[in-house]
Every structure is written in C-alpha cells, then in structure tokens.
C-alpha cells in the first residue's frame, strides 16, 4: 500500500510525505486537525491539510522563535505566546529559570488536546506551573492589556483561516501596547520564496515596521515547510537583535539546543539579496 500525505505548496507545487498511519482526525469551525506517523518526518500534525509541525524538524522552528529574543533580553520574565498549542515553544522557554510566567493563547483547544495525547513529550511543558493557557480570541485577549509583557511570541498557523487575525495591523498595534518599554515581539513570517507567500510576508512586514521602531527579519531552514526556507520577524521597542546580543551571558546559561547557537544568531539576520530587497520595498512605504 502506498499512502502519501500531499500538501500544495503552491497551486503548481506539491509536497508529499509517505505516511505509515493516520492516527487522528477531528474538525470544528476552526479547522480540521490531522495527525500522521511517517517514516521520514516522524509524527506530524496538519491543520486544514497544511503541515504545522513534524517531530523531525519542529526543534528548528521552536528554538528560533524562543532563543533569538531570549538571548537578546535574558532578563525577560513575563512572556505571552500566541498559538503554539503543541507546547514546543513553551518547552524551549522553560529552559530559562528567570522566566516567571508564560501566558499561552491558543484558540483551537482541539490542538492542545490532540497534542497532549499524541505528542506528550512536547505538550508536557504545558503542565508547568508557570504556564497558563487561555482559549480565547487573540485580539480580544490583548486589546485591553498595557505595558505587561517582556516578550510576545506570535506563532500563527498561517496567513489564512482563524490565525489570520495574528497578521493584522490591529494585532501588532495591540502587541506594541501590551509590551513594556523594552519589550520584544517575534513572529513567524512565512517563506519569501513563492510568489503568494512573498506578498503576505511583505504585507506583514510592512505592518510591523509601521508598528515598532525596530523591526528586523531573520531566517532558518525548515525542511517540511514550503520551499524549506523560512523567515521570522524580530520587532522591539529598544533592543537591537544583533548589537544587543550578549553571547557570553547566554552561553553561560548552559542551555542545550540543537539548532540555535549565538554564532548562528549573528548570522541569521544576514539575508539573501532578494529578501533584503523585498523587505526594503515595503519599508520605504512608511506613513
């Protein structure tokens, strides 16, 4: 039996993963969640037919969303995470003793429940006493909050569907307001490679540039995502992502990682020319 999971990366490009078993499927008004076992990527979770994470490469994504901002401001104590109901980002954050609270907003409770059952090694982080999970609309949660968080991590599922509101100007504006004077926001920024993704990346970048005084983009290699090449956004009120990195201080923390290093940190903000250009194109259009 040949059993393949196929995702359309563009209308003209397919990405297929050979599957051993279809373990789980459930659908509600927020979308359809499926979990598969595969020989190459291990167990993976898809929402509405798009791979959200795989056991094999989630470490790259989760480490890059967590350690890059934490290394710039290791004093961060109060963290807010949008999405990431699988617990991967929280697992990385819990490696910092200094963090006091992690508030996690995951509107799709089904994802949290499915992950607790099928990815217990990731989701067990969600049971840490420092973590509080809220299942409500992200915009509703954040719009009345002011000056409370040191770091906001935006792990949106994609540009369409229920996660769409995490890519809007009103959302970034609300994040700015909810951050302290030296607050940092990081977000996943899609891939710059395929045309449609690129346009959305540019739109999101423009909105962040308009909302934060400092806004930079960094990159990582994530094999299971469209084009395998992925961007992240680093926006802040005060800290600059490379100049303000205290590599020695972070290395003294002795945190074990599989992708992130302080050397990689310095390099990941160096972008290919075509990406620099597409970002510069929208940075110019300031209000």
């Amino acid at each position: 039996m040949e059993f393949w999971f196929t995702e359309l990366h563009t209308p003209h490009v397919k990405f297929s993963v050979k599957v051993d078993k279809h373990l789980y499927s459930s659908e509600n008004d927020l979308g359809r969640v499926d979990i598969f076992d595969s020989p190459e990527f291990g167990r993976f979770l898809a929402v509405d037919g798009y791979i959200i994470f795989t056991q094999r490469d989630e470490f790259i994504y989760d480490e890059m969303l967590s350690h890059v901002p934490m290394a710039v401001n290791p004093k961060a104590e109060r963290i807010l995470v949008f999405g990431s109901g699988d617990g991967g980002v929280v697992r990385e954050l819990l490696k910092y003793q200094s963090i006091k609270t992690i508030d996690l907003i995951e509107i799709n409770e089904g994802v949290v429940q499915a992950c607790r059952q099928y990815f217990p090694e990731m989701a067990e982080s969600l049971d840490d006493p420092r973590v509080t999970i809220y299942t409500e609309n992200a915009l509703r949660f954040i719009r009345h909050i002011e000056n409370e968080y040191d770091l906001i991590i935006v792990d949106s599922a994609g540009f369409y569907g229920p996660g769409e509101s995490l890519l809007t100007r009103e959302f970034y504006g609300s994040c700015y307001k909810a951050l302290k004077a030296d607050g940092i926001m990081v977000n996943q920024h899609q891939s710059p490679f395929y045309e449609e993704d690129r346009i959305e990346t540019q739109k999101a970048h423009k909105r962040i540039v308009n909302s934060f005084p400092i806004s930079r983009v960094y990159q990582a290699h994530i094999p299971s995502y469209p084009s395998g090449y992925w961007l992240f956004g680093f926006a802040s009120k005060k800290f600059r992502p490379v100049i303000d990195l205290d590599a020695d201080a972070w290395n003294r923390l002795g945190i074990k990682t599989d992708y992130y290093t302080t050397n990689l940190h310095k390099g990941c903000f160096a972008l290919p020319a075509y990406v620099e250009r597409m970002l510069a194109d929208v940075e110019k259009i300031k209000d």
Binding site: L139, R140, R143, S165, T168, E170, F171, S174, K177
Partner: peptide, 18 residues
C-alpha cells in the same frame, strides 16, 4: 463571524491609540 468583529474592535482601539 466573530473573528472579523474582533478585528474591527481592535482596529478601532488601535486607531484611537495612534
């Protein structure tokens, strides 16, 4: 749908702030 209404409310909030 509620999700779009949340966007509208937050956008009005942000417009007032800015």
């Amino acid at each position: 749908r509620m999700r779009e209404v949340e966007r509208l409310v937050s956008a009005l909030f942000d417009i007032k702030r800015l």
